[in-house]
Computed example of a mutant assay.
Amino acid sequence: MSEANRGARGVVPPQRPGMSEANRDGVGFIGLGQMGEPMARHLTGRGLVVFDARADAVAPLVEAGARAARSVAEVAAHCALVSIMVRDDDQVREVAEEAIAAARPGTVLAIHSTIRAKTAEDLAEKARRYDIEVVDAPVSGGFMGASAGSLAVMVGGTPEAFERCREPFGDWADLVLHMGPVGAGTRTKLARNLLHFVSFTAAAEAQRLAEASGVSLRKLGRIVRHTDAITGGAGAIMLRPTTAPLEPDDDLYDILRHTRDLGEKDLSLALELAGELGVDAPFARLALERFGAGLGLAEDTDG
């Protein structure tokens, strides 16, 4: 779509039958894949308008009460809030630019895909020319959270845009947080997913150690899932507003010093076992080397 067409703010795509003026304050959802479909399903009571390139993805939402649009532009022209959940930066740009061309002033476009922060910032700058808000609002919690309506959503955008999104997002999310300006939501998601996927590699290392020791990997997995649900896993130590070294009078100092002592002991024992069994454990070695400093404790902190 050309820049000339993007500037034609009065042009609205032809309405399909049943898409009345009354629907213009509804919620739109574009991209009905594994995450988008269950997220959108929670919005059917809000005058939901949906679009996906695959007709078979649209049909179940229509059966649940949504209205089907013929294009991205038609969704954007009829909805005050439009959610976008497509695959990557290129698809986000394509969809968002078509939506910007058709949306009315005051519309909020919410990008839920995990993309580059710069992509969201560029689209927000372009949309601002037409009095359209863009928020980057990636989610965490997987298909299970999307189905249950218990996702976490990290929103980057103006405070005003966030307030307009907060309630609809709450239909499919248990935790809705404003992280800062456009781009902040995506930066939060990338930091969160760094932890998520690095931990998968650490889990593979732990499984190699367990397997070499003759331990059941399935039972180990049950133990990990059970105890992480109790302790909160790695998130349990993410309590500080800074990564700077802790001062001895900090309320968390003794707690994290105890955590450091236990962690260094157990990592040392695991590395000893790995050495006996000939299992390479580079993540464990790196963790032991950096464990105390990562908690904010200097190497010579003995109390």
Rank of each mutant, 00 (worst) to 15 (best):
A148T: 09
M144S: 10
D136S: 07
S140K: 13
S140A: 15
E160I: 04
G157V: 08
I132M: 13
G157T: 07
A148H: 11
D131V: 07
V135G: 02
A146N: 02
E163F: 00
G141N: 08
V155F: 10
P159A: 07
E160A: 15
A146V: 06
A161E: 08
G180R: 06
D131G: 10
M144C: 00
T158P: 05
Y130L: 12
M154V: 06
E133N: 14
R164P: 02
V139R: 05
A184P: 02
M154N: 06
D136E: 09
F162G: 07
F143Y: 06
H178T: 03
D174Y: 02
I132D: 09
A184E: 08
H178P: 03
V134L: 15
T158H: 05
V155W: 12
A148W: 00
F162L: 10
S147Y: 02
G180F: 11
V153A: 07
D174Q: 14
S147Q: 15
S140T: 13
M144L: 14
R164W: 00
F162K: 10
F143K: 14
E160W: 00
L175D: 04
S147I: 13
H178G: 00
E133V: 14
S147D: 05
L175R: 15
H178R: 15
C165T: 11
G185I: 08
P168M: 03
A148E: 13
E133A: 15
A146I: 04
F169E: 12
V139T: 12
V139Q: 04
G170M: 12
L151N: 08
G142L: 03
P159I: 05
V135D: 01
G142T: 01
T158Q: 05
G157L: 12
D136L: 10
A161S: 12
